[in-house]
Amino acid sequence: MEKPVIATTSLAGCFGCHMSLLDIDERILELIELVDFNKSPINDIKTFTRECDIGLIEGGCCLDENVHVLEDFRKHCRILVSVGECAIMGGLPAMRNGIPIRECLEEAYLNGPTVRYTNNEKIMPNDEELPIMLDRVYPCHEVVKIDYFLPGCPPRADLIWNALTALINNREMDLPYEVFKFD
């Protein structure tokens, strides 16, 4: 039987969830026996080269580019999993959600203490190469259909491991409270 294929990405996240995935320690050797990786920062494959079984999404959507990547994942992955607080609820980046985006940008580029006297031409970065900020940070499930949610900031390595092996082996997930409790 062909090995299941996994893709991962970090949208508006801090890569902490990817770090937590690496935190499975020596089980990573077991993991590469179990699965193949496609598009992922772990192997640096930048674009999908084949259809995948499982897509792990870290982070919510704060840029149009995040939306495009997420939609691409939905297109290429049979199962999408929101991994961690940011993917599920927006997380820390969503703290800006109560403030209009114009105010955020003005604070960052025009009025903040480190730019107030240096950005003399009052320029807001707007090169067309730059992605565009969304009006707020969206959790992934508001943009595409998400199949599973793994809580934590980041989710513990054991939780990610349990979830992955359960998905791969098509069995119920083993979920003791200690593995996914908040603290």
Binding site: V67, M133, L134, D135
Partner: peptide, 8 residues
């Protein structure tokens, strides 16, 4: 979702 960011 992009409108405000683009306008800003």
């Amino acid at each position: 979702a992009m409108q405000d960011g683009m306008a800003a």
